[in-house]
Amino acid sequence: MNVLHQHNTQLPNPSFNVEEKKVWELLDQVYDPEVPVLSIVDLGIVRKVEIEGLVVTITITPTYSGCPAMDVISMNIRLHLLQNGITDIKIVQALSPAWTTDWMTEKGKQKLKAYGIAPPVGKSFDQQWMEDVQVECPNCRSNNTRLLSEFGSTSCKALFQCNDCKEPFDYFKCH
C-alpha cells in the first residue's frame, strides 16, 4: 500500500464529523477523467471509506498498472472533498484484490452504453471472454460486430467495428 498524501491542515475550514454515506455520495460525483460519464464509484475503484475522528481514509485501486488517470483521480477526490468541507483526507492505493470490470455498477454500464462505449461483456473470471466475446454495437444495437484491435484509445478499451452500421466504436474490455 502506498500512502499518496498526508493530512492537510493548512485550510481554514476544519473537518466536521462526517458520515460514511455522505462521503460515498461525494465520491459518486467524482468522474473518471478519461471516461467522463462514469463516476469512480460506478467504475468500482473506490474500495473502502473509513472515518476515524476527523480523518477520512479512502482506499482506491487502479484499473490498469500504468493508468495515467489514477493521479488525476486522487487529486480530484481531494479537491471535491475539500470543497465540501472535509479537510483531513488520506488516500491509499491498494493493488489487491485486483480491480475487475465485475465491480462496475449496473448504472455505470448503462451510462457507458448511452455514451457510445460498449460495456464489458461477461465476467472476468471466465477466460473464454477473450475467445468469443460478442459485443453489441452501442449505436445500432446490432450484434454483428468485429474486433479491430485488442488495444484502444485508453488502457481499458478495445476497438470494435459494427458490420451493419459500419461505425467503429470503443469497447470497455473485460478485465
Partner: peptide
C-alpha cells in the same frame, strides 16, 4: 496504439 498500451502497462 497496441504496442504503446503494452508499453504503458509495463511501465506501470
Amino acid at each position: 496504439i497496441a504496442i504503446s498500451n503494452i508499453a504503458l502497462d509495463l511501465i506501470g
